[in-house]
Simulated scan of single mutants.
Amino acid sequence: MERNPPPRVGLAAVAREAGVSTATVSNTLNRPEIVAAATRARVLSVIERLDFVPNTTAASLRTGTNRLIGLVVPDITNPFYSEIAKGVAAAADEQRLGVILCNSQDDPVRELSQLEMLAEQRAAGALVVPITADAKRLARLRSLGTHLVLIDREADDGCSTSIDDVAGGRLAAQHLLSTRGDDFVLVNGSHAIPQCIDRRSGARAALSAAGLEPDDLVEYEVTEMTTEAGVGVARLLLTAAEAGAPLPSGVLCTNDQLAIGIIRGLTQHGVSVPEQVAVVGYGDLAIAADAPIPLTTVEQPKYALGHAAVEMLVAEIRGEQSGHRHSTSVFRPSLVVRDSAP
């Protein structure tokens, strides 16, 4: 004989048991910071004892939103975005939010489609690592009506969290200047990527500050910022050396994957790193510390970037009615010195 499940405990039952209003119970779950600590503790104790589960579906029907947010990244296999996602997930847990992870696969059309889907599902908001900085396209994303916070990109009109990549490029170049002199080259991604432009600008600023000519900086631009692309640039350096050109004393790469590729390509052909060529990366991914030759690199606060973005999104959602001022958090990178460029 089948047994009927026990009746579901409702919000009113929790309020009655805790001796508070249903609004206080709701605030304890959704806006705990405005509830007195003692009251909040009492309500949470009753919730646990009665095994109360909020009816989020009903709440979303009443308010027109739900407790889900979206995170749209260009490539979920990239460790940089994985670390950002960890920060997003931790902050979302703190705010009792669920996260839908979307992979745009470096495709602007797919990125827009995913944001439209989030808007159709009435997601509370979206966090986006945008593929390009096209102002018209970003305005289109905002026009969908979903609260939006950009990650790793400064926004002209809206909230965003980003990293001062000009400062990061300057740090890396200053380190090579102080340890190897001005005979280093830059291995960079596409100039269509704002971060690549900023890191290049920082390196050039370091040369200028040292009384050197920024235009003398030799740059190798690659279409994909991968380990394989770094190996390819190493081959170009070795080919030039065979033709009589000296190897550079240092190589500054605008991400860690390129730097690992440079090291692999050089050492496979008998070039010693760092004795002959010092190599500096950017990002401080897990592969940097774990590489056969631990990589000197620029550390980016990736976890903090994602965590702060969620806090901004929540503030924007809650401030919609009372008035909200957009804000930008810019995190400063730091240099981590390891064996590849001591």
Rank of each mutant, 00 (worst) to 15 (best):
T77F: 02
N78R: 10
N78K: 06
Y81E: 07
Y81S: 09
S82G: 15
I84P: 06
I84K: 05
A85S: 15
A85Q: 03
A91S: 15
D93K: 06
D93V: 10
D93I: 09
Q95Y: 04
Q95M: 05
Q95L: 03
R96I: 05
G98S: 13
V99E: 12
V99Q: 08
I100G: 02
I100N: 05
L101V: 14
L101H: 06
C102F: 15
N103H: 06
S104P: 09
D107W: 14
V109K: 10
V109C: 00
V109E: 13
R110H: 06
L112E: 09
Q114N: 10
L115Q: 15
M117Q: 10
A119F: 09
E120A: 14
A123C: 12
A123Q: 08
A123W: 05
A123G: 13
A124F: 08
A126H: 10
V128Q: 07
V128E: 08
V129I: 12
V129C: 15
I131Q: 06
T132A: 08
T132M: 00
A133P: 00
A133C: 05
K136Y: 00
R137G: 02
R137D: 04
L138I: 13
A139W: 09
R142N: 05
R142H: 11
R142Q: 12
R142G: 03
R142S: 11
G145Q: 05
T146E: 04
T146R: 02
T146V: 14
L150D: 05
I151T: 11
I151V: 15
I151D: 03
I151W: 06
D152K: 02
D152P: 04
D152L: 08
A155S: 15
A155H: 00
D156K: 08
D156N: 06
C159A: 14
I163Y: 00
V166F: 10
V166P: 05
V166A: 14
A167Y: 04
R170C: 11
L171F: 07
A172K: 01
A172H: 03
A172S: 12
A173R: 03
A173T: 10
Q174E: 15
Q174S: 13
L177Q: 11
L177V: 13
D182E: 11
F184Q: 08
V187S: 03
G189T: 07
A192S: 14
A192W: 12
P194E: 15
P194M: 11
Q195V: 08
Q195M: 14
